[in-house]
Simulated scan of single mutants.
Amino acid sequence: MIEDNETIEEFLARHADDVEESVRKAAAQEIMPRWRRLTEHEVDRKSGPHDLVTDADRQAELYLTDALRALLPGSAVVGEEAVHDNPGIYGALREDAPVWIVDPVDGTRQFVHGDTGFCTLVALAHRGVVHASWTYAPARDQIATAVRGQGAFLDGERLDAGSPEPGRDLRVATSHPDFTTDEQKRALLGLNTEGVAPRSCGSAGLEYLDIARGACDATAFCWEAAWDHAAGLLLVEEAGGAHLTRAGVPFRITGDNVLPFTTARDEATARRVVDLLSAGA
């Protein structure tokens, strides 16, 4: 818990490892026992045929909600499944209490199909600023962490996003066409140009990890859900990258962003992608 007059930074110095342990336990107890063993009644659809949710999503979020609140009494939890049931919970991002932002299974489609490309995302934010993040890919036994001002790490090794290789096409992961409006599709068409190689994204959290480690150059995403972005945005920032909306300002987890937005290995690449998105729109 945060003790009297303790800052978020001091809390993290004492409890970052405890958060990681909670993330790992949630995956070990609620996610991995169901991976490649899901039955039909454990998979549902939310807003459409491609928007899947499983018992692993629901149970892992419940586990993390209890564990994280116990570590930080008085904190709020904005979890994907809880917000689906009660959209008003999302408003906690604009309030004064510290907020845990949780996506229990990011890449549910991949999880349902038995692929390894899914992860659990947790971020700690306060007054709209993300202070720490955890990205855990249990099927790949990888964990990436970041604390604001202290760098980004993958399995304990510091990450450096670097810059795209000169002369090579920019590798850009984009929102899947199933989840974009006609206007957003027009903006994304701006990426269909010489020197850019766009492709549909997989798990957003793992796309951010790929940017932070230099395996992808940028994203172009068309949705704002904080549970998909908060952990990865900090991870990329702490690895030296940048994020910008089409308004030319950093993405805000509290919302009201001009979309699509980009996250990239460096600021120059972010500005190039934003310019192409604006030209397409």
Rank of each mutant, 00 (worst) to 15 (best):
P73V: 12
L38F: 03
P33G: 05
D217M: 04
D210K: 12
T120D: 15
V83L: 04
A281S: 10
G202C: 08
V19R: 00
C201S: 13
W134Q: 05
T180C: 14
E165I: 13
A26R: 00
A215T: 11
E194I: 13
E20A: 12
V77A: 02
E3K: 15
P164L: 04
H84R: 05
Y208V: 00
D155A: 13
P166M: 14
V130M: 05
A197Q: 08
H113N: 14
L206N: 05
H50A: 11
R171T: 15
D275M: 06
N257Y: 01
S22N: 12
V99F: 06
M1A: 13
P138S: 07
N5K: 15
R58P: 11
D51H: 02
H15E: 03
D55V: 05
F251C: 03
V258Y: 06
I253N: 00
D210R: 09
S200C: 08
L52N: 02
G149Y: 12
F111H: 07
E157V: 15
W134H: 06
I143K: 13
R186P: 06
G240W: 04
K25C: 07
G48M: 03
T263Y: 03
A137Q: 09
R34I: 14
V23Y: 07
V78N: 06
M1I: 13
V77K: 00
A268P: 05
R24Y: 09
T145C: 06
Q59M: 14
Q59A: 14
R58E: 15
A264K: 00
K185T: 11
D55C: 06
A239N: 04
G255Y: 00
A60T: 10
G190Y: 04
T65S: 10
K185Y: 10
A239D: 01
G202E: 09
H229M: 06
P260L: 03
P250K: 02
V129K: 13
Y208A: 01
C119R: 04
E165M: 12
V23N: 05
R140K: 14
R94Q: 14
R37H: 07
A264C: 03
V129G: 10
V99C: 08
E207H: 04
S47H: 09
E42P: 01
R168A: 14
T120L: 08
R34V: 15
G162A: 07
T180K: 08
A281V: 08
H229C: 02
T65A: 08
T254G: 00
D228G: 05
A220F: 01
A139E: 15
Y90R: 12
